[in-house]
Amino acid sequence: MRGTIGIATVAALAIAATTALAQGTGDTSGHDPGAGGATGEAVYREVCQACHMPAGEGGTGAAAIPALAKNAKLADADWMVSTIVKGRGGMPTFNGMLSPDQIASVATYVRGHFGNAYAKPVTVDDVKRLTPEGEE
């Protein structure tokens, strides 16, 4: 399973590497080895907590970074997956940066932790269904 995710990530990155500059992300790092996390928790630590903070508490500066802890909006799994895939507000598009496996895992993890208790797991099929055509 781990190997499968690794290969999927490498493939996604190859695409990300070629499109990064075409999309005008500017003078940002030329190389990204990607997120290797195989579990929802690993992906959360590796990626999500950079903004949503270690306990999903979010943060406040000139604007607020939404808390994931006890977040009633997460009841709608499709909304959550769609947000991860497409980005929202200042949140990045994670389609291409994370594999469908990783997105499903981390969505399931967050919906079952930090004071959230939505039992139904998010599946890879859910992620694919909500990923814009031709962009996966």
Partner: peptide, 8 residues
Amino acid sequence: AGGAAAYT
């Protein structure tokens, strides 16, 4: 660090 690594 860019991409996913920036978040890590």
